[in-house]
């Protein structure tokens, strides 16, 4: 392959930048869901208790 260092650099950035943002976003979401569950026991983050069966299944 020609220009290999340039290609590798571009692909590393192309995976690392979106990847780190994705990991950070999901970690923040998980943390928020946990804290919310601790603050408000009624809230079942992601699905609301009530008509849905999500609450019972847990």
């Amino acid at each position: 392959m020609t220009h290999l260092p340039y290609i590798v650099a571009a692909y590393v950035l192309g995976v690392l930048i979106p990847g780190s943002f994705a990991v950070a976003a999901f970690a923040r979401m998980r943390a928020a869901a946990r804290r919310l569950a601790a603050v408000d026991p009624r809230a079942n983050p992601g699905s609301s208790p009530g008509p849905e069966t999500g609450a019972r299944r847990r």
Partner: peptide
């Protein structure tokens, strides 16, 4: 789709964080 997923996850987190603040 990755962009949309990141934004959606961050917005979910923001909604829950605001809910936590309000409850507290």
């Amino acid at each position: 789709l990755v962009f949309a997923a990141i934004v959606a996850a961050r917005t979910r987190a923001a909604v829950m964080e605001r809910r936590i603040r309000t409850l507290l």
